[in-house]
Amino acid sequence: MPKFTKSPWVMHYDGSSCNGCDIEVLASMTPLYDIERLGVVNTGDPRQADILLITGGINYYNESVVRQIYSQMPEPKVVVAVGICACSGGVFRDCYNIKGGVDTTIPVDVYVPGCAARPESIIDGIVQALEVLEKKSAASAAPTEGESNA
């Protein structure tokens, strides 16, 4: 694990999931898996979140909701698609109301497989997301230093 200086705040949204992965996301916050010991806080506000955990596929009704939440998050932000339905549509990909996985609507950085995704996989996914977040922060921090010098 890389060295983290700041704790990331996680927001969870359920888009057409069966609740299995949502419950496992909540279970990762509970004492047995306790992602809070890694410094991760579950917040309900997209404007204060760094990582978006999305479960479930995208359907025609919640497409605009997901886009709105994504746009409300400040940069740098990371999207983690938790569960097979979020990765690719899962068993529902032929349903008339399902567009597909989350990457049909917003860009996804980490895919976490599993049905329901185990809390250990979710923890692994969040750790990978943290690495992606570090890279994005470093990339977005560099130009501002140049500007301040100039």
Partner: peptide, 24 residues
């Protein structure tokens, strides 16, 4: 927001495989 259209899948899947959809 969570509507997937699962009952329609019954006509597309073999009834043995549909069990795994119903579970979800």
């Amino acid at each position: 927001f969570v509507h997937r259209g699962m009952e329609d899948l019954a006509s597309k899947r073999d009834f043995n495989d549909y069990l795994y959809v119903v579970e979800r």
